[in-house]
Simulated scan of single mutants.
Amino acid sequence: MKSTILVVDDDKNFRHGLERLLRREGLNVVMAPDGWEAIEMVKQGSVDLALVDVKMPNMNGYQFLELMKSDPDHQHIPVIMISGLDDIDSVIMCLEAGAEDYINKPFNSTLLLTRIRGSLEKKQFHEKERQHLNTIRKEKQHAEELLRVIFPQPIVQELQTGREIKPRGHENVSVLFADVVGFTSFCHSSSPEEVLFNLQELVEAFEGIAVKHGMQKIKTIGDAFMCVGGLWDATNPAISAVECGLDMVERAPQLAAKWQVRVGVHTGPVIAGVVGHLQYLFDIWGDTVNVASRVQESGAPGTVTLSDQMLQHLQGRFNPESRGRIPLKGRGEMELFALKPGAKGLHSLN
């Protein structure tokens, strides 16, 4: 594609003389008699290089140059100043203002064309470099978005700073498991597309509820949804976890599959870190996780089941009903408590 040269000079004969010279070299030419008109032409069309006289009425070449170089959309366009002025101060002033080159009148045509070609080649190189940098920025942004999908924000920040992701111990973390009642039979009686559609709807709903209550999703395991509060910034992770669980229990039957879920919550210390090499996973481990899973398994549909340890952190906010001491696999007996959403708020099970 032909390059377009903008010729800016108040001398009509000089403008047309340059036009003939440039067109013979296969270049497109547009012309303006002063800086103001030239600026408008730059804004309206594609200009690859400007040849600008220093001394002009209305807006002189220096002013045009300053405006061009202060505009982020057009500052990359090279400007070659042409003038009868031959003092070194004018040359320095133009170059400091951002001119690509400076040629005195009368000029040598071969020299002018050589400098125009050199400036256009340099511009093309810079445009390719700018496009490459934009591609890198977009790829970096995409990579960061993928990281945020895989890891919590604090882990992403550590990765971006180049720090090693070290495992950490956290105290008083509330772990929540939510499991779909009758999911296996639903899978046997439904198409793969139907199963995935409904599971996706449920997971998206639960992700939104978790975010609302300041909980961090850890993972889904089949039809089970796992999230935690207190790893980073939850004020009272136990209260957040219970409110989150109650919202999940209430929301699940409202979805297309009309599922019921069991939710179990337990609080205590956990270890958190990143594992894997080919596929990374942020996860948590510890007895607290195992107990939360067992508490969920022992619960009733449509109910949030709490461990006795959870009750100590709720500050009297809820009035759960004791289910007595329930045997938990690998843990022996533990007193559990039950809550479910009511028509006008939270109440104990009757």
Rank of each mutant, 00 (worst) to 15 (best):
E37N: 10
G245Y: 00
A178L: 00
S298P: 11
D283G: 15
A300H: 13
L281F: 14
K55Y: 06
L22G: 02
L51P: 11
H170M: 10
K43N: 14
F14D: 08
E333G: 11
G208K: 06
R317H: 08
F337V: 12
R331I: 13
D48I: 01
K2V: 12
V156D: 12
Q296T: 10
L176V: 07
G222E: 02
H347D: 10
H213E: 03
T305A: 00
S3F: 07
V180Y: 01
E121N: 15
F177P: 02
L349N: 09
K128Q: 12
K55D: 08
I82W: 00
E158N: 13
L21F: 07
K55H: 10
I82F: 01
K105C: 11
N60R: 00
S189E: 13
S3M: 03
V274S: 07
I150V: 12
V52G: 06
P237N: 08
V181M: 09
K166F: 04
G35K: 01
I80G: 00
A178T: 05
F64R: 04
V156K: 11
G268T: 11
P152H: 08
I103Y: 01
F177W: 02
N134M: 15
L113P: 14
I150K: 03
N58L: 10
V263S: 04
M226V: 11
A210R: 02
M93A: 15
L113A: 11
T235F: 08
P106M: 02
R168Y: 10
V304K: 05
F64T: 09
T110P: 02
W259S: 04
H76C: 07
C187Y: 02
V265H: 03
P269V: 11
I326E: 07
T288Y: 06
M56I: 05
G98A: 08
N60E: 04
R15A: 02
L278P: 06
V265G: 05
V203A: 00
S70I: 13
A241H: 02
G345I: 01
H170W: 13
L147A: 15
R115W: 03
N60C: 05
Q254I: 00
N134C: 14
M31D: 06
H347E: 14
L255G: 11
H347P: 09
E145N: 11
V195D: 11
E66H: 08
H313Y: 13
K212Y: 04
E144G: 05
A252G: 01
D287P: 05
D308K: 07
E96D: 15
T184D: 01
G345V: 06
L27Q: 11
P33Q: 15
P154F: 03
S185A: 15
E201S: 11
L349P: 10
L112F: 03
L85M: 13
Q296C: 14
S185G: 06
G345H: 02
G276F: 03
G316Q: 05
C244D: 01
R262F: 02
L349K: 06
E100N: 10
E194Q: 14
C187W: 00
K217I: 06
H313E: 14
A97V: 04
I218D: 03
H126A: 15
H277A: 13
L306T: 09
I116Y: 01
P253N: 01
H126G: 10
L113G: 13
G345N: 05
L278M: 14
K329C: 13
V228I: 09
L27R: 11
E193G: 10
F206E: 04
G35F: 04
P301Q: 07
N58G: 07
